[in-house]
Design a protein around this nucleic acid. Structure first.
Lengths: 352, 352
DNA sequence: TTGTACGCGTTATCAC
DNA sequence: GTGATAACGCGTACAA
């Protein structure tokens, strides 16, 4: 009874084995509660069965939904998920990618947005290339030039479409509470908002205000809005959590939503449903699961059919080849709920 | 230039090395963008630098806060976090533990509650013992007899204390929306609630209702409450999300909170602050970080000072040795907010 | 059909 | 202060 025989039985090799021997191996393995070392297994193969995901902060529903999508696919495929919080710091992103590379991850998913004019971006791109050269798949879930395939939503269109909803309801002066300064997603969403307002001939009614992605930011920005009347017809926040902050500020000030003013957000996280917030549904779970599937499929293909470095098979949606890497754009959907309503009749409020 | 020399330089060995050689090694390593394989490293040591955490569902703020605590400590210590969702299924818990064991994790953290009279519990206990025998640390973040150290809160006391807050405000008929059927945490919280009501001589006013940990459950249970008047003085939900569901149902029915009825929850997740919900703050982040610290410290100790299988050093709080494994009980705190108020004056509502 | 031998990359041990 | 080698546990090419 040689180790190779046992290996062949337990790893389901196609090598012929007599039924008797096979049974004996299985029996002994069960007896010993034996299970093969994934470490040793990974050492002799091009990569481990670990898939990594880099999130800004797992305690943020946007990212935890993505992580759920990743893990569901990973688990079903016999992989284990590695998770790291990077707190939006590119340097941390690089070092965590490195850590996952040290474990010969099958792939690493970048879930967070990049920064505008990030001085460290080139270093990250280099780290990504190194990982790829080593056979580690990489996937980005945001539009950022990492030189890897990406599965994204069009954040300009997201903001454009929810703004359109507001405009269609008759709102003419709309305050936009922006996301965190310097992030790519912040810029894209602002552009989408401004674009729709301009297209409607309402450029003068587009009120951009600094904000953030958290409750506090939305609350504070709205307080400032309230202090400088006249109130806009509607408040659009760059994400749901900030929108909930805006909602609270308005209601605490005794302002009726949506009677006097409409409020909307983006992302459609659980909270949005709780407070009946109009928002935009994003396919976050799908982004995570598609990314994981891409990694695992590619890894499997590279494992069996030795090295097929052709163009990766892409899924659905529009394809764009910014830098040779396929981009899959997933669709979103405006979800009208109770915080938006038709603009009340009456004289136009004065433009400032 | 031998591999051993390079290893000594790069792994920071205390072995003496000439400055010249050291510099050369470093230079070459930088040139090659070399970084050691964590896989190979783990093969020759008793365990990898991976720490696993098993959660019911990462897309549940209760668990994502814990995961954050785990990962912060892991990252600082040079470890990587493995995460798996087990959807409250013991069988899944066993198989994911196994998967992490295959990677020779330094330790695995069980974040979720167990089930009452779980037929598969013995299998899990056995799997845990196997892991331990192999040198894998295990930590439970809930009270369940896994035969491993635990870092927990006293859920009976949590429910007791928030009920006390309600009773102190003069409420005499309190509806308790329970957690998911069959879970240990559900039972403990119900017991704490009933215990405080009984102590106040209000056993007749303790109204237990089936529920769950999600918005829908809280909403539905409250709708049923509303349909069967008279209304209780207060509604206590087994967690914050269900409490928010209760809140919505009441407000949609035009019932003033806290004017006509008080509402409270438990856990103090972000949502609770958004809706100004009275609740109980749980040290979830600390539970995760303490568990990770325990694992990493123990692994390091076992690595250097060869095998010191004495009693593990425990942190703060009360210690109980159910089965030889240390239990650390962390403290909680009632957080009064805007959804609870003194019971309005007036004639006692009739008991049913 | 089964057994043997090698290599994956690292660290610890022992020889120089 | 440096180098060679064994060992970790697996899969696999090759020999029997």
């Amino acid at each position: 009874m040689a180790v190779s025989t046992a290996s062949r039985v337990l790893s389901g090799s196609s090598h012929p084995i007599s039924a008797r021997t096979r049974a004996k191996v299985l029996a002994v393995a069960a007896e010993l509660e034996y299970s093969p070392s994934a470490l040793a297994r990974a050492m002799v193969s091009p990569h481990s069965r670990l898939v990594g995901v880099l999130v800004s902060d797992i305690d943020n529903p946007y990212f935890s939904v993505i992580a759920r999508g990743v893990d569901d696919v990973a688990t079903r495929a016999g992989y284990v998920t590695m998770l790291s919080n990077v707190d939006r710091r590119t340097a941390t992103e690089i070092s965590r990618l490195q850590a996952m590379r040290d474990y010969r991850a099958a792939g690493v998913i970048f879930a967070g947005s990049g920064h505008v004019d990030d001085p460290q971006a080139p270093d990250l791109v280099k780290a990504v290339r190194r990982a790829q050269e080593q056979g580690i798949q990489t996937v980005s879930l945001a539009v950022r030039d990492l030189g890897c395939p990406s599965v994204v939503v069009d954040n300009r269109a997201v903001a454009y479409d929810i703004t359109d909803h507001l405009v269609a309801l008759g709102h003419r002066r709309v305050a936009f509470i922006e996301g965190p300064p310097g992030m790519t997603v912040t810029r894209h969403r602002r552009e989408g908002f401004l674009s729709r307002m301009a297209d409607a001939g309402l450029a003068d009614g587009a009120l951009c205000r600094p904000g953030g992605f958290d409750y506090q930011s939305g609350h504070a920005a709205t307080l400032r809005l309230i202090a400088h009347r006249p109130l806009p017809d509607a408040v659009l926040a760059a994400n749901d959590e900030a929108a909930v902050g805006a909602l609270s500020a308005l209601r605490q000030a005794g302002i009726d939503v949506p009677g006097e003013i409409s409020v909307a957000g983006m992302d459609d996280l659980r909270t949005a449903e709780f407070v009946d917030l109009t928002t935009v549904r994003l396919p976050l779970y799908e982004m995570g699961s598609l990314a994981a599937r891409h990694i695992i499929d590619t890894a499997a293909r590279a494992g069996s059919a030795s090295a097929t470095p052709g163009t990766p098979a892409t899924a659905t949606g529009a394809e764009g080849a910014a830098d040779g890497a396929a981009t899959t754009v997933l669709s979103h959907r405006v979800v009208p709920r109770g915080t938006t309503a038709r603009r009340p009749k009456g004289p136009d409020r004065p433009h400032p």
